[in-house]
Computed example of a mutant assay.
Amino acid sequence: MGKAKKSALRLLPPDWRESIWTAASTPEWRQSRPQLLPALAVLWLTGCRPAELEQGIELVTGKDQLVVKITGAKCKDAGGRERGQPTRHIGFRTDADANAALRFLHALAGGNAVNGIGKCTITHNKDYLYNSVVALGRSAFPKLRTRISPYCFRHQVASDLKAATSDHDITLEDAAKFMGHLSDYSIGSYGHAAHGRKGRGGRVKAPFVSTARPIKHSPKVDRFARFKKASAKRRAVKPT
């Protein structure tokens, strides 16, 4: 399932999230499924897991910033060992470059602000969310042969982060924190840098991200980096 969602991004247009957002913003969808648009906004910004959305995503907003607190859904493996992040906080600036999802959540949390601080919690049943996103995908892209699911948002965010690390806009450690991973190697299972929002204004920049557990550096990351450099060097000297 993960590989299928990862490869599905190559079949989608660069602005597929905007198209899904536009479809969900129609009066018909907002009246019939009022919880959907806030959930989509959280998926777009954070790439959180559907199970984390079901537990509840906490928002805190100020004048020009939004902080999202996510309680991790995968914190232990079958053997009881530590896995992932119990909690992570991601901060965003709501400036002129903020996309529709960020502006929506900032306004939603700020609607009941007290002394300039607004708070709210976004939650959505994960199974109902899956069915809704699949239906939205079919509505927005009727000719598309692949299925758009909530995990496509997670793979897209990972792709954006990989593109950002390639451009040195974010460290691999912060990318791991953003995704809620315990190791900086885990993001390799998600997305492709080639599918990231590069130079299109769609990449969301987070001014800070923090996690409950420190990120573990994997030696596999260094080996993979050396392999990529060697491969690039071989391609450069290959006779035409």
Rank of each mutant, 00 (worst) to 15 (best):
E54L: 03
E18I: 04
K220R: 07
P214M: 10
G47R: 05
P214G: 03
G196V: 05
L36A: 08
S32T: 12
F178K: 04
N99G: 15
G80P: 03
A96P: 02
A176F: 08
V237I: 14
L108V: 02
A193S: 13
G201W: 15
A158I: 05
T240Y: 07
A98F: 05
G199Q: 10
E18C: 02
R145C: 09
F153A: 11
A109Q: 09
L12K: 03
A140Q: 03
A113L: 10
G56Q: 05
E58S: 08
E58R: 10
P219I: 08
G110K: 06
D174E: 13
D167P: 00
T22C: 06
D184H: 06
I148D: 01
E173C: 07
T71S: 15
V67M: 06
A225R: 13
S159H: 01
R138G: 10
R88C: 01
D184M: 07
T61A: 15
L36M: 06
K233P: 01
G116A: 06
A193E: 14
Y128I: 07
I90C: 03
P34N: 05
T240S: 14
K228F: 04
R145Q: 11
K76S: 09
A236Y: 01
M179Q: 12
S159I: 05
G196S: 06
K143Q: 12
L108G: 02
K216D: 10
P239T: 12
S139R: 08
L43T: 01
L11E: 14
T165K: 02
F153P: 03
L43G: 03
H89S: 11
R226N: 10
D174I: 01
M179I: 08
K143P: 01
A163F: 05
L172P: 00
F178N: 03
L161A: 10
S189C: 04
A107Y: 00
A8L: 03
Q85K: 00
P219D: 13
L66P: 04
A140T: 09
C48L: 10
T123Y: 01
I20T: 02
R103P: 01
F104R: 00
F92C: 02
K220H: 11
T87E: 13
L36Y: 09
A175S: 11
R138A: 08
G180Q: 07
K6R: 15
P14D: 12
G202A: 07
K3D: 14
H217C: 02
S149M: 11
D167F: 08
A158W: 05
K177N: 01
A4S: 12
G191W: 08
G196R: 03
V68K: 04
A96C: 06
K69Q: 11
K177V: 15
H168F: 15
A206P: 00
S32H: 10
D169C: 07
S19G: 08
T240M: 13
K198R: 15
K205R: 12
R235D: 15
T121A: 09
Y185H: 10
F208A: 13
Q65P: 00
A101M: 01
I170V: 15
Q55H: 13
V157L: 12
Q35S: 06
K6P: 00
R147W: 07
